[in-house]
């Protein structure tokens, strides 16, 4: 798969024709540079996921209450009866 509009669709984006043209051009420009990565032999290396030298640890398994239902719903574009409101999803 190489079409910009197909990747856009995966990301739930619909592009206009002019957006498709510009993003395609910029993507081609970026990808030309990406080709240089292949010149480095990394076959014996592990990926570096985090730069921290310390290991992440889990916190105590104790429930905490950060935000109330009202706080969270207040950020929603639409809400109804204490829930996020969405269009009908089942016929």
């Amino acid at each position: 798969m190489s079409n910009i509009t197909e990747y856009a669709a995966i990301e739930r984006l619909a592009l206009t024709d002019s957006e498709t043209d510009l993003i395609s051009a910029k993507a081609n420009y970026l990808e030309e540079g990406f080709a240089a990565l292949a010149s480095v032999d990394t076959s014996a290396l592990a990926p570096l996921v985090t730069v921290l030298a310390v290991e992440s640890v889990l916190r105590e398994d104790v429930s905490t209450k950060m935000l109330s239902r009202e706080d969270l719903l207040a950020t929603a574009p639409e809400q109804y009866d204490g829930y996020f409101q969405v269009p009908k999803t089942l016929e």
């Binding site: 990747y7 856009a8 990301e11 739930r12 984006l13 592009l15 510009l22 993003i23 993507a27």
Partner: peptide, 21 residues
Amino acid sequence: VNSRSEALGLDAKLTIIMGAK
């Protein structure tokens, strides 16, 4: 689709699409 397409800017769309790629 319409919320994201209408609200995200061109550079953000490019970045997101490149991320998917």
